[in-house]
Amino acid sequence: MSRLSTDQLSLSYGSRPIVQGLNLRVPDGLITALVGANGSGKSTILKSMARILTPAQGGVYLDGKLIHRQPTKEVAKNLAILPQNPTSPEGLTVRELVSFGRYPHQKGFGILSAEDNRMIEWAIEATGMTMFRDRPVDHLSGGQRQRAWIAMALAQGTEMLLLDEPTTFLDMAHQVEVMLLLEKLNKEQKRTIVMVVHDLNHAARFAQHLVALKNGTVLYEGHPEVVMTSQMLRDVFNIDADIIPDPRTGAPLCLPYGLAEEPAGSAASIGEPATADYRDERVQAMA
């Protein structure tokens, strides 16, 4: 099933088309990773799904209704988005930041209710930020700040989280810290998570559904074990790489060696979406 989907979605910046005729269904209760080269349309699609960017044609559907025709607060009660590199006012504490997540549920003068306070404290605890709750956000490390922003998104009480490159500019330890948190939220609370990811090995390890994009078109889609192939890396990223199983998790592990020597000639490389059968045939051929 899919509560969030697109139908013939076309997006552009001014007169420049970015995405054309996109049909995409986000699987409920899974982590979906959008991957692709810079300029492939990943962040643009995410913004449209969150109703930040208005489609040129087609639409985004939430529970079967066009999301851009739904009231802002109603959308915010169903999905939360964490944009890339969010910033907060200087001196704002973690708890104050997290409390902003309750805005869609507030009435009147925005006074926090008992339920608001319960959700705020729950989100702070769920993200491991209890000991930092009264600390200014700008005094935290990169990983701690990112967890605070995720806590704010959690405080909205939504079943869906959309995250645009949640590990950007974080060191390796903080990247793993954030990804493990998202994995925990998905496994323990069945949160549907859609994230734009640059690190393909993070995408393959933590996501159960992978969408590989090129020029605003889905070339490959499915479970990482099916999608993460040498051919996909050639078609989508134009790189020469081997795929081996992760020695601990068994997830596909990408070992890049350089740029592909010549453009790929498969159907997917010229914009034809690979079907499930087509992907399976490729995996079998490579075995």
Rank of each mutant, 00 (worst) to 15 (best):
A274V: 12
D164V: 05
T6M: 01
G91N: 04
R69L: 06
V75H: 09
L82W: 13
G29A: 06
E121A: 06
I243S: 10
T275M: 06
M160G: 02
Q208W: 00
D134G: 00
E281L: 13
A204G: 09
Q175Y: 08
A76K: 12
I243F: 01
L255V: 15
Y257P: 00
L4G: 09
S2F: 09
T32D: 02
K190A: 04
P247C: 01
G265E: 15
V137H: 06
D280M: 11
T249S: 15
K47E: 08
E177V: 03
Q70P: 13
V194G: 06
E74Q: 14
L163E: 01
L82D: 08
K65W: 11
A251G: 07
H223G: 02
I244Y: 12
T229E: 05
P104H: 10
L170P: 12
E177P: 00
L34N: 10
P166E: 07
A33Q: 09
L9M: 04
N186W: 09
G91A: 00
Q284S: 11
E90R: 11
A268F: 10
G110Y: 04
L140R: 08
V26Y: 04
V98K: 13
Q20E: 12
R102I: 01
D134K: 14
Q144L: 00
F100W: 14
E261W: 05
N38Y: 11
T249H: 14
L233P: 15
R248K: 13
K42E: 05
R282G: 08
I243N: 10
T6F: 01
E96N: 04
R102C: 02
M131A: 14
I67N: 08
A260S: 14
Y220G: 01
Y278M: 11
L53A: 10
L259Q: 13
I150T: 03
T72R: 15
S88L: 09
V178T: 12
M232W: 03
S99A: 14
F100P: 00
K65I: 07
S99Y: 09
G36P: 05
A267K: 13
N186T: 03
T32Q: 01
A274G: 02
K214T: 02
L24F: 10
L53G: 08
N23G: 06
D240Q: 12
D116A: 07
H174E: 02
K42C: 06
R279I: 15
A212Q: 01
K184N: 07
A76N: 13
D277H: 14
G36D: 11
Q84E: 07
E125R: 15
Y278A: 02
G143R: 12
S269R: 12
I239E: 07
K184D: 06
D240F: 09
S230G: 14
K77Y: 01
M160C: 12
R282I: 15
G59P: 12
T130Y: 04
S10C: 03
E188M: 03
V283E: 02
G64Y: 05
F237Q: 03
Y13S: 03
L79K: 10
D28Y: 08
P136S: 00
A285N: 11
E90K: 11
R234D: 12
V226C: 06
I193R: 05
R135S: 04
K187Y: 03
Y13H: 13
G258I: 07
I124Q: 08
K187P: 00
Q84G: 00
G21V: 02
A76D: 13
Y13R: 13
A207E: 07
G258D: 08
P252N: 09
L170Q: 13
G216N: 03
E262C: 01
I239K: 11
